[in-house]
Design a protein around this nucleic acid. Sequence first.
DNA 1: CCTGGTTTGACATATCCATTGTCAATTTGC
DNA 2: GCAAATTGACAATGGATATGTCAAACCAGG
Lengths: 151, 151
Amino acid sequence: MATAEALDHVVRLVRDTFPRLQAAADRLHRHIGVTPAMRAVLEELLDGGPQTVPAIARSRSVSRQHIQSLADALAEAGLVHARPNPAHRRSPLLALSSRGRAVVAALRGAESPVLAELAAGFSADDIAATARTLSGLCAALDARRAAARRS
Amino acid sequence: MATAEALDHVVRLVRDTFPRLQAAADRLHRHIGVTPAMRAVLEELLDGGPQTVPAIARSRSVSRQHIQSLADALAEAGLVHARPNPAHRRSPLLALSSRGRAVVAALRGAESPVLAELAAGFSADDIAATARTLSGLCAALDARRAAARRS
DNA sequence: CCTGGTTTGACATATCCATTGTCAATTTGC
DNA sequence: GCAAATTGACAATGGATATGTCAAACCAGG
């Protein structure tokens, strides 16, 4: 079992790492004309198929209003389109357009050599342990948050 | 050596984890009256001793203007004070006030039981591997950024 | 059916993090 | 000393995200 101090260290590292990742990805996104948040929506649609705005918001634990504004921007840019939702007249399903698919592919393609270069510096075991830790941490934080919300 | 795919997974987890950590910390900070970014400055001063605004900005790789505005707010709140800098007349050293020290202590004290609870869910080895990975990742990203800036 | 609670879209407002740019004062390295 | 880098002060901007409100649509229980 880990100590609180060690976990604290990890928490701080996550906070340090995040803005660096954002900065590294930023030029790329700007160049292609999407923001990182928009990209996250595109990837959600790619991985999870067509979904409604509230469904995406729930899956990312953010407000539906925020996703709505991203979705509006993506629709205006022609990267997603709304298709009628048989299950709900007012809430259309968002689906990637072919341009949207191309944008995700372009982003991933541009990143993959960088990731490969960075990956060379790490052992597969450490990376696997990191993934375990972070996904566990996400789950634990979600559970706490749900508990807090109920009370 | 790790694969690009595995590292990509970790990158996405960092992006998922970060806002959850922010949200978890937020109520606490709001309650005490500092923002997470202000807290980071306070901790930098606690760990690194009195420093100038540009020094803090460099250590966190953010713009000095941003740190300046946080420092101004902290000074107004009485959590830090400027003391004359023997090495630079225009650029004072920021130091924690006793109230600032108390605020950091209060934040840490409030967090530590939560951290301990969360830490129980992880093995010490995984946490150590995670810390290694993230600090390596930060260093690699800093190096890339420095290289990009020079060119 | 119909009525009440829940979900949704649309719109407005606010907060925080962080950047970039500019100017004048200062410091520093040659 | 003088040119180049550093610094503080101010301004503008942008992005991620949260809340709050209202009206339309949906769903489930009588």
